[in-house]
């Protein structure tokens, strides 16, 4: 497959990039559909931050891979199996509570992941993370506030967000199950040992869920895995179809 890579560092950077791009793409679907203008703008702001972050990672991965590879090749000309994003980020937006539950689990993970990446032995990854973590702090604050607002809201909002939070538990577990690429990255000090991020994540998530007056994260939920190995849910192909169709129909098109 073109633009797949066996280089462990490139593979790790691509995993980071794919999370940011796929979630950024998902959030962009809200553009023009938010419940009110401010929230529409908020989600598209977050989307923009994530796509900007994805570009930083893809540019770096393309440099490592060489052979004329560009960020556009990596975003638009790889197939689903080459993408190594977590299953969580490709899940459909659903209703507002679904989107914010997905975002809340991800942002909280993303913050601790970037905090660890800020001390990466890889200089470039450290630079990218030290920049992105400041933006991520705002994302995490925003999604946590919404979980509290919905949970500690009306009977209907609480019932809905409780179901959303429970639904995404199975996907959040994948964060902390290391893939081969994660393990190698941790050994080299490029990134964190993902299982070690779990206690801090759980503590933060549960502190917000308590404020939201909804049940704590159910630790016995079995984690669904596969995303980091390129085995995605059915949704993934549809995301790529929409995101990549223009670039593939008109290669080298420019604005």
């Amino acid at each position: 497959m073109k633009w797949d890579t066996c280089d462990p560092k490139a593979a790790y950077v691509l995993h980071l990039a794919d999370d940011a791009l796929i979630l950024g793409q998902r959030l962009s679907e809200w553009c023009g559909h938010g419940p009110i203008l401010e929230q529409d703008i908020a989600l598209t702001n977050i989307s923009l931050d994530l796509i900007g972050l994805a570009r930083q990672y893809y540019q770096y991965a393309a440099e490592i891979m060489g052979d004329g590879c560009t960020e556009n090749d990596l975003a638009y000309f790889r197939d689903s199996r080459a993408f190594k994003n977590h299953l969580l980020v490709e899940q459909p937006n659903g209703h507002w509570g679904d989107t914010l539950a997905r975002q809340f689990y991800f942002d909280t993970f993303h913050f601790f992941q970037l905090e660890a990446l800020s001390n990466s032995t890889d200089e470039r990854l450290g630079q990218i993370a030290r920049k992105a973590i400041k933006e991520c702090a705002y994302h995490a604050q925003y999604s946590a506030e919404w979980i509290i607002r919905l949970g500690d809201g009306t009977e209907e909002s609480q019932a809905k967000v409780k179901a959303s939070l429970a639904h995404f538990e199975r996907f959040a577990g994948e964060f902390f199950v290391p893939s081969d690429v994660d393990t190698q990255a941790a050994e080299k000090g490029w990134g964190p040992a993902v299982d070690a991020l779990r206690p801090a994540w759980l503590e933060k998530v549960n502190s917000i869920l308590t404020l939201a007056k909804v049940p704590s994260f159910n630790e016995s939920t079995v984690a669904r895995t596969g995303g980091k190995a390129g085995i995605h849910s059915e949704h993934h192909g549809y995301i790529l179809a929409e995101m990549q169709s223009l670039a593939r129909a008109y290669p080298d098109a420019s604005w």
Binding site: I41, A42, I46, A137, Q141
Partner: peptide, 28 residues
Amino acid sequence: KRSLWAVQPTVHCPRCKSQNTELISLFG
């Protein structure tokens, strides 16, 4: 960085200078 994740600052109104303001949306 972790402080960015927590408390809201007191922002004063650029027009009437009042400290009595509220956050409408984190993203503008």
